[in-house]
């Protein structure tokens, strides 16, 4: 199989200069563009497997480019590099058709893990789970809009953060999600909040699922957690 091609779009030349060799070393072919408009130009003759897109750029920002691509029927997977980590902004990134997003400053290893996860998903031809309102795995289902979890038809209550943890695990079935990533995604505060905070929410979820399958969330010792069952999305 040939190397997957990535198009990296960021207005910061130094960032591109450091990111390009790093991604190439990880087995990707890398093209770059300094802003949204130039990225559109290169997409005329280039068909990347994935686009890494900075949100804040001059001329045409990342969101605008993403909207234009999706409007034109271009469904090349996109990972957004976001600046502000508010939950609203994150939700917006996914609604606009991004496949994933990562906050700056990101950990290089995390970026590569996300690229590989998104590529795996799109190779299977699946629409990203993040584009669905409801996620279901066996009897368990969650409504991401009303923030409600159900076993069959019985709603059960979870704290807001436990729900968000479950949501993130279900959005990435089969993937190891690190405690740090959950802290970053759910708490938005990777350093100050201790990793035990994650473990407490996991045990809350397992307790709520005890009648069903507490084992659907696997502990990866010293690393994080993984949702081991298949998840399907519904509108």
């Amino acid at each position: 199989m040939s190397k997957p091609t990535l198009l990296v779009v960021d207005d910061e030349a130094d960032l591109l200069a450091e990111l390009k060799p790093l991604l190439e070393r990880s087995g990707f072919a890398v093209a770059t563009a300094p802003d949204g408009r130039r990225a559109l130009d290169s997409l005329q003759h280039l068909t990347p497997d994935l686009i890494i897109l900075d949100v804040l750029m001059p001329h045409m920002d990342g969101r605008e480019l993403l909207r234009r691509l999706r409007k034109a029927g271009n469904w090349t997977p996109v990972i957004l590099l976001t600046q502000v980590g508010t939950p609203a902004e994150r939700a917006m990134s996914l609604q606009e058709g991004a496949d994933d997003y990562l906050n700056k400053p990101f950990d290089p290893i995390e970026l590569i893990a996300r690229i590989e996860a998104v590529l795996r998903r799109t190779r299977r031809g699946d629409a990203p789970l993040s584009s669905f309102r409801r996620l279901r795995s066996g009897q368990l289902s969650i409504d991401r809009q009303t923030r409600q979890a159900k076993l069959d038809d019985d709603a059960f209550s979870l704290t807001a953060r436990a729900f968000a943890v479950l949501e993130h695990l279900m959005l990435n079935p089969g993937e190891i999600v690190t405690r740090q990533r959950l802290l970053d995604e759910v708490w938005g505060w990777e350093h100050a909040v201790e990793t035990r905070a994650v473990d407490i929410r996991i045990s809350e979820i397992r307790k709520a699922l005890s009648a069903y399958q507490p084992g659907c969330i696997e502990t990866i010792v010293g690393t994080g957690y993984r949702f081991i069952h298949e998840v399907v999305g519904h509108a």
């Binding site: 910061e12 130094d14 960032l15 600046q83 700056k104 400053p105 990101f106 290089p108």
Partner: peptide, 9 residues
């Protein structure tokens, strides 16, 4: 944020 990202990379 950008400088920090570049330093880490």
């Amino acid at each position: 944020k950008n400088p920090l990202t570049i330093i880490k990379l």
